[in-house]
């Protein structure tokens, strides 16, 4: 009987493993930003670490030094004076899909969605909401979304250059 019980416990553990939630990740997601008021303000970061799980959680992590500008001087100013990359090297986002029920991770298709969560940038954490799309293809999700980021909200003193930027997110998960 003891063997039988052990077998049941083992089976339950196996069952647990099989039913664990699906987590998708990438280490080279893309986040770019640009300003409508100054066309030189344009940078892209291709080394964004991101994860998404079918429980609706989504996270993004990046190093602000990873943003590449066309103008090297502007990149220096961005790191040194605006986001202060030495002091605050990282930007993080922890969010949840608002309409998880409408997204089926195991069925191919494009799902309009909205994500809400905490963005930490320049040492300031702020709750933001962004609208985007989740595409499921061959069981692998990809996300794209766009939102406006107001410099003042994150204590970034860039008024001389631009007061807000449009952020584009594009990640293909494995």
């Amino acid at each position: 009987m003891k063997i039988f019980v052990s077998f049941i416990i083992a089976a339950l553990f196996l069952l647990n493993t099989a039913e664990a939630q699906k987590v998708f990740g990438t280490r080279n997601g893309q986040i770019s930003f640009s300003s409508a008021s100054d066309q030189d303000v344009k940078a892209v970061n291709n080394e964004v670490a991101s994860r998404i799980a079918d429980n609706g959680q989504i996270t993004f992590s990046l190093l602000t030094k990873g943003f590449k500008f066309k103008l090297a001087e502007m990149q220096d100013h961005f790191n040194d004076q605006y986001v202060e990359s030495t002091k605050f090297p990282r930007a993080d986002f922890k969010g949840t899909l608002v309409n998880l029920g409408e997204v089926n991770f195991s069925k191919d298709g494009a799902y309009k969605t909205s994500v809400k969560g905490d963005l930490t940038l320049h040492g300031v954490t702020k709750n933001i909401t962004a609208n985007g799309t989740i595409n499921i293809k061959d069981g692998k999700p990809s996300v794209s979304c766009q939102f406006i980021l107001v410099m003042k909200d994150f204590n970034i003193d860039a008024a001389k250059v631009t007061d807000k930027v449009t952020v584009d997110v594009s990640c293909q998960y494995q």
Binding site: N16, R51, A53, I58, S61, K94
Partner: peptide, 19 residues
């Protein structure tokens, strides 16, 4: 235990530990 296992997938904690 299964309930416990389901809750263990927490991307927020995963992000913190990766960071």
């Amino acid at each position: 235990t299964q309930q416990g296992f389901s809750q263990q997938v927490d991307l927020f904690k995963m992000q913190d530990s990766t960071n």
